[in-house]
Simulated assay, not measured.
Amino acid sequence: MSNFQVLISIDPTIRFGKPCIIGTRIAVVDILMWLASGMSFDEIIEDFPELDMSKIQAALAFAAQRERFVKMIAAA
């Protein structure tokens, strides 16, 4: 998903500046944690009807993009 930026916002007054799905207070990390805990896309959408598949995919794309820039520093 190359246009995930239109679905993610970072506002210091919402959730302490955590990246959120635009128009909601649902943070990218919330979606990642739900998926990591075993929730399916359908279960997340059922519990949070303001989300849809494109918003969940935007959260995953955002996280993947951030991960590309994480550098590991090896201990000497």
Rank of each mutant, 00 (worst) to 15 (best):
D42C: 09
D52N: 15
R68V: 09
D52I: 06
L32W: 03
L35K: 14
C20Q: 01
G17T: 09
N3A: 04
L32F: 05
E67R: 06
E43N: 10
A64G: 14
S9T: 02
E46Q: 14
A36C: 13
G17H: 10
T13K: 07
I22K: 09
E50H: 15
Q57M: 05
A36T: 12
L32I: 07
Q57W: 03
P49E: 13
I44A: 00
P19W: 11
I8H: 10
R68Q: 09
D11S: 03
M33F: 10
F41K: 01
M1K: 01
A58G: 07
F16R: 07
D30W: 02
A59Y: 04
L51C: 04
I73A: 11
M1F: 02
D11R: 10
V6S: 00
S2R: 03
D47Y: 03
S54T: 04
S37N: 12
W34C: 00
I56M: 01
L60W: 05
V70M: 11
I22R: 08
M72Q: 15
F4Q: 05
M1E: 05
A74I: 15
E46P: 02
R66F: 15
S9W: 12
I26Y: 01
P12D: 00
I14E: 06
A27P: 06
E67H: 09
I73S: 09
T13M: 11
Q57N: 12
L35F: 08
S37D: 13
D30I: 03
D52P: 04
R66H: 15
R68N: 10
K18A: 09
F48Y: 13
K71G: 11
S9N: 13
S37A: 10
F62E: 00
V29K: 05
M1N: 04
F62Q: 01
I26R: 02
S9L: 09
A59K: 03
S40I: 05
Q5L: 14
D42F: 11
T13D: 12
W34E: 00
T24H: 15
A76D: 13
V28P: 03
V29S: 11
M53F: 14
C20R: 00
